[in-house]
Write a protein that binds this DNA or RNA. Sequence first.
DNA 1: GGACAATGATACGGACCCGTAACGATCGGG
DNA 2: CCCGATCGTTACGGGTCCGTATCATTGTCC
Lengths: 117, 117
Amino acid sequence: MPLEIRPSQALKLWRQVHLDLVRDGQADLSARQTAILLTIYLELPPHTVRGLAAQLGVTKPVITRALDTMGKLGLVTRKRDEFDRRNVVIQRTVAGALAVERLADLVVEHAREIGGG
Amino acid sequence: MPLEIRPSQALKLWRQVHLDLVRDGQADLSARQTAILLTIYLELPPHTVRGLAAQLGVTKPVITRALDTMGKLGLVTRKRDEFDRRNVVIQRTVAGALAVERLADLVVEHAREIGGG
DNA sequence: GGACAATGATACGGACCCGTAACGATCGGG
DNA sequence: CCCGATCGTTACGGGTCCGTATCATTGTCC
């Protein structure tokens, strides 16, 4: 059963959620950072810098810097892989899980409000 | 008729759309810029710097700078209001309308893919 | 052990954005 | 005409991010 949504509804939803994100003063994440964060929290671990870079189609420094920023915000953590010490495993945090959950609630709530658009 | 969507579906949708935005190499807009762009294209004109700042809960320079950037990208245009020459009216462009339309299509398409999640 | 590959981090110059504060231009009332 | 209010922009110091190139560390294979 596909999720049906019309273009006008999609845009209203997109706008309302972004408005809330901005007004709540939450971290003003870029599209890249959002994609990284959600990939970490939705896809099965383990996550590496290399893997994320490949999935997003960006270079490794982009991921490293995004992880630096999100690390400061407490949204993710890094840990060296003990089996292959070249790798770094990106781990989830409680704060990160809460932020993702809050985003989900925001989308659900506004979707409900929009209704027939 | 409310638009029903579950949290897990919302997150999948959010991730997929952001992944596409990043991979398409489109302008990597921040949450603020996205909110501004969609407000201009969804709400009734006229739009002013002051009005946008109030709606988003940010300061005026934030809007000015965002308009500078989007102007370079061809997404919006500015014009002085001839009736009150203190005001600046923000206008839509063909390129901006296309970008918004593309975003809508992206959301609709991924919503359809997700289905029962 | 040594050459080579792979991983993530760092250096660099340049661009953008932030918040606060000040600025020039314009309007409106006395 | 002038003073104050309003509008959008710009200046400033500080921070983040970009892409490219390079680096140190670690693993792999002969």
